[in-house]
Design a protein around this nucleic acid. Structure first.
Length: 484
DNA sequence: CGCATACGCGCC
DNA sequence: AAACGGCGCGTTTGCG
């Protein structure tokens, strides 16, 4: 058995040179990540220091300690049956990469360039001077000192400066024409500088971009993606779709996305055992509409779009431990109304409140929380004497078992799908490319899309048994822009 | 000059 | 004043 660090990189090297893979392997970094997912680094030096209290340790010593802890924490199944197989799967996904239409990106770049130069001119004209729009410091001076725009309701940054973020710009939109231009500028500049420009640089000789998945990158069990991060590609607006259209399928293939519908809320319903929410998912109802009907005390037919929107914000916020202040801010309600809606929510879904309180108590009592598979997160600050610190740990505590189980489910699905691909000898026809928390993106040969799509959907839906069904929606297209 | 920090923002 | 969980990354700014 191969016992070492960064086995994904080693497997990639072996695959590239066509060599045989080891029969079994044990990634030390991932093992320690499961023991404590909040370490910022998982290097041999750091782990020896942190866990063995030594300057140096051999892999054997690190292995012995890790296996002991994995057993003690009941993490062996998750480690050996999910995380380790995933190393090989991620290696494949990274090597494969996703095809990019370079010409499309270049054209988009030019379009953005043109739009941006127009906006810059308008902004300078409104400001009566030229300055660096990308500098919050300079922008703040122009907006609030030179132009003297009213700062009522505008928040300050952590260091006390007047904020210039989107929320602020929206607030002053009606007070000065410059704000609208700045909002447009921000959107386009972000798109160009963060996505369109870097992506072009990262296209390989094979015409594809190859992200790197970090298996030890989050404290909840999720994966992260870097160089480039393909888990935060813009979606929704016209410009975002233009960008997504540059992610394409190879000739003879289509991109096919498989999305878990409401996976975190389903997990929360299941964990809490809340009868109303479980029934809603069992009946395949519109969960936000159902929530709205409950918090507004109306029938499903009487739910107006605005009511549903508020309920949706509530549903998402609850998973994160959102308070009245934050709910008020994101919903546009005043503090009192926001507080009432949250109370009403927990009154309607009592078991969710109970589950959250139990989970917080666990964090305080044991200093950690776990999810159904034993995935663990240490939260020693739950008993901090600083109220803010303790509250922050409590919010992390109620979120981790939910986010972490959702992460496990998609990882389990990836492992079973990978096995199915091998079994059916679909290696060249069904390529798993991306994993984006609750979504898997494949490149599938056009002749078997139907058959493979059905198989993949089924495997995703049966990856884990909850108190409610898992639901997957599938979409196929020539580009990523077409599957959203 | 490189590096860390602040700010801001894209996604789930 | 803020207090919504989890990430990665671009630009600016100030420090050594």
């Amino acid at each position: 058995m191969l016992i070492d660090f960064n086995l994904k990189e080693k497997l990639k090297e072996l695959k590239k040179s066509g060599k045989k893979l080891p029969g079994g392997y044990f990634d030390l970094g991932i093992a320690y990540w499961m023991i404590n997912p909040d370490e910022k680094e998982y290097t041999p030096e750091h782990l020896a220091e942190q866990f063995l209290k030594k300057n140096k340790a051999t892999n054997k010593e690190l292995y012995n300690y890790a296996t002991k802890k994995l057993k003690e924490y009941k993490l062996e199944k998750l480690f050996y049956e999910v995380e380790m197989p995933l190393v090989n799967i991620l290696a494949d996904m990274e090597l494969k990469g996703i095809k990019i239409n370079a010409k499309g990106l270049k054209d988009l770049d030019k379009k953005l360039e043109k739009e941006l130069s127009g906006l810059v001119k308008k902004i300078y004209k409104e400001a009566g001077e030229t300055f660096n729009i990308n500098s919050p410091k300079q922008l703040s001076r122009v907006l609030f000192e030179k132009l003297r725009i009213d700062i009522k309701g505008v928040k300050k940054t952590r260091t006390g400066a007047i904020s210039t973020d989107v929320e602020t710009l929206n607030l002053i939109k009606d007070k000065h024409a410059i704000a609208k231009y700045l909002l447009d500028y921000r959107e386009l500049f972000k798109l160009q500088s963060t996505y369109v420009k870097p992506l072009q640089e990262l296209i390989g000789k094979d015409g594809r971009v190859h992200t790197t998945y970090i298996q030890t990158g989050t404290a909840t069990g999720r994966l992260s993606s870097q160089n480039p991060n393909l888990q935060n590609i813009p979606i929704g607006t016209g410009w975002a779709t233009e960008l997504r259209k540059a992610f394409v399928a190879e000739k003879g293939y289509k991109l096919v996305s498989f999305d878990y519908s409401q996976i975190e809320l389903r997990v929360l319903a299941s964990l809490s055992g809340d009868p109303k929410m479980i029934e809603a998912f069992n009946d395949d109802l519109d969960i936000h509409k159902l929530t709205a009907a409950n918090v507004f005390n109306v029938s499903l037919e009487e739910v107006a779009p605005e009511m549903r929107r508020l309920a949706k914000t509530l549903n998402f916020g609850v998973v994160y431990g959102m308070g009245a202040i934050a709910f008020a801010k994101t919903s546009g309600l005043n503090f009192g109304e926001a507080k009432k809606f949250i109370e009403e929510y927990f009154n309607d879904f009592k078991k969710i409140k109970e589950w959250q309180e139990e989970t917080k108590a666990q964090a305080r009592t044991f200093g950690y929380v776990t999810n159904l598979n034993g995935r663990r997160r240490w939260l020693l600050r739950a008993t901090s004497m600083f109220r803010g610190e303790a509250a922050e740990a409590e919010r992390a505590a109620i979120n981790m078992p939910v986010q972490g189980l959702a992460a496990d489910i998609i990882k389990i699905a990836m492992v079973t799908i990978f096995e199915e691909i091998k079994k059916r000898k679909w290696d060249e026809k069904v390529r798993m490319l991306l994993t984006i928390h609750d979504e898997l993106l494949f490149e599938i040969s056009e002749d078997i899309i139907k058959e493979a799509g059905t198989a993949i959907s089924k495997l995703m839906e049966s990856a884990y048994e909850l108190e409610v069904p898992l639901k997957v929606t599938m979409k196929a297209g020539k580009s990523w822009g077409e599957v959203q």
